[in-house]
Design a protein around this nucleic acid. Structure first.
Lengths: 343, 343
DNA sequence: TTGTATGCGTTATCAG
DNA sequence: CTGATAACGCATACAA
């Protein structure tokens, strides 16, 4: 039997000869209602197939119990792990998660932010699009006291929460690791710098590691790519390999970049790690499949998501009056595998 | 300046000396409103920082313009591509997407389904949890004419839309490919069968391909794993390699299974594809990184997502009175790479 | 073309 | 402990 008619608290009230307010309270286990009534109501609710309408409740309460997540794409191991962390944390607290992809487009990001606001999400977690150069479109959230957390690719100067890793330190560590393996001519493959500047920070770490270890910084060894495609990485790598002073180490700012580089190096018959040591960034699943296994920097994606969600939840429970929006920095470490180990 | 007070159509009405109904219609570009008023209203809306409250509209309209997606996990290349397909299609139509993960648990699936219903999503796309053995928890959607689409891991008998690949045919093709390469003793590594029976279909295809090519079916060559962990796959593979009649081909029902198997085979110093040819399933990014590159079955994940979303959208536009819920079957093909090519 | 009145399903306030 | 009623913000039927 189809019931084309939604069962509401009115129906329950009528059936049980009670007021809707009593039904509502009973359903929510309000303390001022006798256990007897609560039981009676709940039983009837199940019997009649009552399902609460969150929409109505949200409208009334002015809170939706959903967290909006906006990021460049979800089809990337790192980001889908991050979402997973958000989702699990939110779910435990009874929150839903709506996910949107900006596809690294500023325009889409702006539109989706509007849309999230119109949906009256309780909080927002965002990883900026590659294209994004300003964050004025987020003002609507801060203006309306909707907790906002930037994660991973975050603006450098902003009066909002930020959850991230120390990209500078990680870049330093990665480079230092190669130096420790005996590399003295280290190249850096990275992406053209952006507003969220995770890449530029990694690069700074790279440069400082070189300097502090008395190694020269050679701009010809630094490559800024527009995309992460295999082709672009291959030509860039080939260029490096053709240099007079061919690098003996490569620090790639992402695992896919590193993997493409390795594939290219191998094609040329150059030995890894003996002739060129390689380290990537992110600890993608792929890094354990490429041969030799890729050394990389661990990136606590799921924890970033979890931390972001927790900040939102905490703020929703007890809105911070003071404007202290702290920055959460999670730890990273070098994972040394065969692509760099020269024992 | 913070504005702690939401701007509503009432505010606009007051400011412009118009009725709220006029405002509402103007905002929606209703044809019965003069262009002049429309312009005036829209301008004022922007000026005053008006943002539509989707919640209220949804409650009134009884439609939320959001699609619920429930699947085992999003942190898997195949599934995150699928979501991506849903999301892009939905976004174009002005729909939002809420995503939930069952983590392959029946209990979680049931709870989340309730939650989706309570949120009054306009439609639902679901890939069943591994544990799930029945689908009575979805009855609430069909009972209330909320379009429901099962995708990929779908129930065999159900009066709902299904979007999937032909797992039987794909299993057959994969096996036939190995036979064509000269394999005569082909093992099959798969997962313990489930209600959504994608694996059992693939296995049937495998068996029929053997039979129709006059090859014996040997149960010792068929391995059913409980998980996709490397360890479990490794021990299973070792068992196969220790058999008296060692297989000369392996059809793994998933790329990760195939990759683990390859890694194990290589450890033993057995040559791929000369001594053992391997084919996987899904065309995960990983399959192009393992060496030798993994032959596999293409799986149109994003298209599955897109097709599912389109069915939901079409149904929302013009609800199907008749109960014809068709099954959409997308195409797959063999992608032959080095792990199986024995030219 | 515009205005009036009402309801969508809840919850909170205030009374009893 | 329970009940009556208003309000959340919007969109529609009906009137003008």
């Amino acid at each position: 039997m189809k019931k084309h008619t939604e069962v509401t608290i009115y129906d329950l009230a009528e059936k049980l000869n009670l007021a809707t307010s009593t039904i509502s309270r009973a359903l929510n286990g309000h303390h001022s209602i006798s256990q007897k009534t609560i039981d009676k109501v709940k039983r009837a609710a199940i019997e009649m197939g009552y399902r609460p309408n969150n929409l109505a409740a949200s409208l009334r309460n002015k809170k939706t119990k959903t967290i909006g997540v906006l990021l460049p794409t979800i089809a990337q191991p790192f980001l889908s792990s991050l979402i997973s962390g958000v989702e699990i944390t939110a779910q435990e607290a009874g929150y839903n998660v709506v996910i949107m992809q900006s596809h690294d487009s500023y325009e889409e990001e702006v539109n989706l932010i509007q849309s999230l606001y119109s949906s009256r999400v309780s909080g927002v977690i965002c990883c900026l699009a590659m294209e994004t150069q300003d964050i004025k479109h987020f003002k609507i959230f801060t203006d309306n006291d909707i907790p906002l957390v930037f994660v991973d690719r975050v603006p450098k100067h902003a009066d909002t929460y930020r959850v991230m890793i120390d990209n500078y330190a990680a870049g330093y560590k990665a480079t230092k690791h190669l130096i420790d393996q005996g590399c003295i001519n280290i190249a850096h493959i990275t992406r053209a710098s952006e507003f969220g500047n995770i890449y530029s920070e990694r690069k700074k770490g790279y440069i400082d590691a070189l300097k502090q270890n008395n190694l020269p910084v050679d701009n010809k060894l630094i490559v800024n790519l527009k995309s992460v495609s295999y082709e672009e990485t291959e030509t860039a790598t080939n260029k490096l390999l053709n240099l007079k002073n061919r690098p003996d180490g490569i620090f790639a700012a992402g695992d896919m970049l590193a993997i493409s580089a390795i594939q290219c190096v191998k094609k040329r018959g150059i030995k890894i790690p003996e002739e060129i040591a390689v380290i990537g960034f992110n600890n993608d699943p792929n890094s354990r499949i490429i041969e030799p296994n890729l050394s990389t920097i661990s990136h606590p994606a799921e924890k970033l998501g979890q931390a972001s969600a927790e900040i939102i939840l905490k703020n929703l429970e007890q809105p911070t009056k003071n404007d202290i929006k702290d920055i959460t920095v999670l730890n990273t470490e070098v994972i040394a595998r065969d692509s760099s180990k020269r024992n």
